[in-house]
Computed example of a mutant assay.
Amino acid sequence: MSATLQLTEALISRRSVTPDDGGCQALLIERLAPLGFDCETIESGPADFRVTNLWAVRRGQGSGKSGGKLLMFAGHTDVVPTGPLAQWQSDPFVPTHRDGKLYGRGAADMKTSIAAMVVAIEEFVAAHGERCGSIALLITSDEEGPSVDGTVKVCELLKQRGERIDYCIVGEPTSVDTLGDMIKNGRRGTLSGKLTVHGVQGHIAYPHLADNPIHRVAPALAALTTVEWDRGNRYFPATSWQVSNIHGGTGATNVIPGQVVIDFNFRFSTESTPDALKSRLHAVLDAHGLRYDLAWTLGGEPFLTPIGALSEAMGDAILAETGVRTELSTTGGTSDGRFISKICPQVVEFGPLNASIHKIDENVEVASLDPLKNIYRRTLEGLLL
């Protein structure tokens, strides 16, 4: 059994449903401290939702093209709930092998990546010692949860300390059909709204005595679906606006409701800003003469790492290890990269196949574990030697 597989299984066996770390980070410290890493545990959040974060850094001398730069790996030890246990073919916290796959909650998202990072670092340090640049890890137990006491808190602390981070690899599962076919070099922003349109409740047989807010808002919704918010750019698709929920009515068939509540979301590119999107949407609602309240929630701003040293080094590593020419993409949901990009100029995400993440019987191809580890190690060699 390879070192990567052993560590992956050890991490999966720890029950770390968000925000619990389940002892995963303590295990990582046991592996990192002997390599010369200074390991700091940073706890945050209320007592009933305590988050554990790990900041571990090894200062290298650096030489040649590394120039003493720091490469940080980032990830999360927390996992989503298992769902109905009866639907799993095996215990989600007992690593299980079937047909060349390793099953368990977190196998793909993202305990395999964390194990591959740590073993890659062990091999790299053993081979190159002090001749390399600096390496760090930022690990949280609050990525699958609210994400308010995890990576964002550590990034704020590192900024206060004046810590310089040159490159960051986030171990999110990004591969689609085969290991290495996709790197995320950015993510769209997310902006949500809860719109309450007010009318006048009344008997459905006397509509002239009521004011139906569903009828009022329908033309506005139709107009919003036709707006071109932006056209995207080389890296991002056009901004998308989508309704996710509509709630209206008393449940009775003979009552016109007094209000309707609509949840919607923007997934937006770097061509738009939250303020501009808010202003344009308000203008459409106002043009339709609606009486409404609107509460906004900014889930995260977009981030982008243009083609550069990090994406090129990782692309070269993937090609050398797998023969796959990778694709840069900004598709998908949000990640902790949105926080790290505030303190690090080059952030990419790369990890195993994402087909089974958050699903019953989450799994990873066993044969992909060591190639993933080797890609991380080759990237270290490409940037820090």
Rank of each mutant, 00 (worst) to 15 (best):
G22W: 11
G68F: 11
T8Q: 00
G67Q: 12
K159Y: 05
V348E: 01
S141P: 03
C155A: 06
L383W: 06
S134T: 06
A355N: 13
C168K: 11
G36T: 04
L328F: 06
E43W: 06
D78H: 09
T322M: 06
S192A: 14
G308P: 06
F264W: 12
A238T: 01
G315W: 09
P84V: 08
P207M: 00
F339A: 01
L71H: 03
S175W: 01
E312R: 15
E30I: 11
C168F: 13
K194P: 04
A115D: 02
P257K: 09
E9A: 12
Y292L: 00
L35M: 03
P352K: 11
L7T: 06
S240C: 12
N354E: 14
E123W: 12
R14G: 04
S329M: 03
C39W: 07
H288C: 05
I262Y: 07
T41V: 15
G333N: 05
Q25N: 12
A127W: 08
A210Y: 01
N53Y: 09
R59W: 13
A115Q: 05
I165K: 02
L85F: 02
I114A: 02
Q87D: 15
A107N: 04
G351Y: 13
C132P: 02
A367H: 00
P146T: 12
L138R: 02
G300C: 14
A295Q: 11
V261N: 08
V324S: 05
F93S: 02
K111R: 06
K153A: 07
